[in-house]
Amino acid sequence: MAAKITMADIARMAGVTKSTVSRYFNGGSVKESTRDRIQEIIEQYNYEPNTFARLKARESNVIGVVVPTLNSKVTSRVITSIGRYLRDQGYETLIKDSDHSIELELRNIQRLITQNVDGILLSAITITEEHRQLLGECPIPVVVLAQEYEEGISVLQDDYGAGVAMGRLVGESCRKRAEASGRQQAQVAYLGVEESDVAVGIRRRQGVEEGLRQKGITDVSFFKGDYSYESGQQMARKALEKGVPDAMICATDRLAFGAYRVLGERGIRIPDLVAVAGFGGYDESELLTPALTTLRFDSYALGYLGAETVLKLIREEPVPKKQIVDFQLVPGKSVT
């Protein structure tokens, strides 16, 4: 019995793109030699195309965009950048919000395929086996944003490098604080998110841990929650049950907002008693007292590169397998 293969496998074995294989199934224009190679592979593996493979008959000039949430400053920057670029190129966007649900994210991808969009930009919550199966059968180009997709094309933030930079900054502050008080070791609390989000839940946390280690800080307590303001408060309260740390590093600015609320309620002064840092570079972070030390990813570049890349794939132009956008530290007054 022949092994089960996907449309992506056929494209790879035939040395063509998935768009070419899709055109084959839809009776579009494909070189005779290419058509023969695809037909041989189909017969060899007894491939039966699914419903999606026969949907893409003509261009719609619409790009589907799947995002984890609309309630995010970073997401709004990415969507804004995508929309601007695609409008200039004569395309429209169709946005689907997954509300941080992996199941809804998969359904959103399926719906966009059936709605005959020309390509999909997927700001992924995570990449599961179900994602790999669905994307492998997808007859249209997909570019994954914010998560690394080894089997396809992705545009990423440097979550690990950003974590290292923030860990080093906060670690240096904590080291000086501990030395000034005659302590040998500083204590840090990390307020993070679940590991299902590999980029933020794992890579960003690992970077922070490495940055702190480079500054001699190894006493780190890790807490996991979701992305909400309320979760930031809950994790901050749990951290304080172990005593007041020298610093709270938060995986997002919104979590840092929650930490500010709890520390303020308890009269714990920032940065005199505890330093606080976040990731995101939200404009509101500058309005806090003291202004939050944070890190801003180039979210506009993320959206622009993603949009540019998916159009190149539609036109069957070569693209890098992985692209990484830059970041910058935004010094506030919450870390001294």
Score class of each variant (00 low, 15 high):
221 S>W: 08
142 V>I: 11
171 G>A: 02
185 Q>H: 04
258 G>P: 12
224 K>T: 13
37 R>L: 12
99 D>H: 13
38 I>E: 00
88 D>R: 14
70 L>E: 14
221 S>N: 10
315 R>C: 03
224 K>M: 10
160 Y>K: 12
73 K>W: 09
307 A>L: 08
278 G>M: 01
110 Q>L: 03
336 T>K: 06
126 T>C: 15
256 A>E: 03
209 E>Y: 04
201 G>N: 05
198 V>W: 14
308 E>T: 07
236 A>C: 15
148 E>W: 08
214 Q>T: 05
190 Y>Q: 02
161 G>H: 03
147 Q>F: 07
247 A>Y: 05
287 L>P: 03
319 V>H: 08
169 L>Q: 09
200 V>C: 11
24 Y>E: 13
124 A>D: 01
61 N>I: 00
250 C>D: 09
85 Y>L: 13
199 A>D: 00
270 I>W: 03
285 S>D: 04
239 A>C: 00
231 S>P: 13
155 V>S: 05
313 L>E: 06
159 D>A: 08
301 A>K: 15
161 G>A: 14
209 E>T: 09
12 R>H: 14
62 V>E: 01
104 L>H: 09
229 Y>N: 06
303 G>E: 10
25 F>Y: 04
112 L>T: 11
202 I>Q: 14
13 M>R: 15
264 G>Y: 04
1 M>F: 02
181 S>W: 04
94 L>E: 11
298 D>A: 13
41 I>R: 01
219 D>A: 04
263 L>F: 10
28 G>Y: 05
285 S>H: 07
34 T>Y: 06
223 F>Q: 01
289 T>G: 11
12 R>Q: 14
26 N>D: 02
255 L>E: 01
78 V>C: 12
244 V>I: 15
135 L>R: 05
17 T>F: 07
23 R>K: 05
324 I>N: 03
152 G>T: 12
9 D>I: 06
239 A>R: 01
20 T>Y: 05
157 Q>P: 03
68 P>G: 09
127 I>K: 09
151 E>C: 03
134 L>N: 08
319 V>E: 12
126 T>K: 14
128 T>Y: 10
251 A>Y: 00
5 I>R: 08
134 L>M: 03
36 D>L: 13
236 A>T: 15
132 R>H: 10
146 A>V: 09
126 T>L: 03
123 S>I: 11
26 N>P: 06
163 G>M: 10
261 R>T: 07
144 V>E: 10
26 N>H: 08
261 R>Q: 12
291 A>K: 06
76 S>E: 12
273 L>V: 07
190 Y>F: 15
196 S>M: 11
251 A>W: 00
153 I>M: 07
193 V>S: 02
5 I>Q: 04
226 D>F: 03
126 T>N: 14
103 E>M: 00
307 A>F: 11
250 C>S: 13
137 E>W: 09
164 V>H: 02
46 N>C: 05
208 V>F: 07
299 S>R: 07
264 G>A: 07
43 E>M: 12
106 L>Y: 06
219 D>R: 08
28 G>R: 05
309 T>G: 03
278 G>W: 08
188 V>F: 02
40 E>D: 02
8 A>I: 01
247 A>H: 03
191 L>G: 01
184 Q>S: 12
156 L>W: 13
232 G>Q: 01
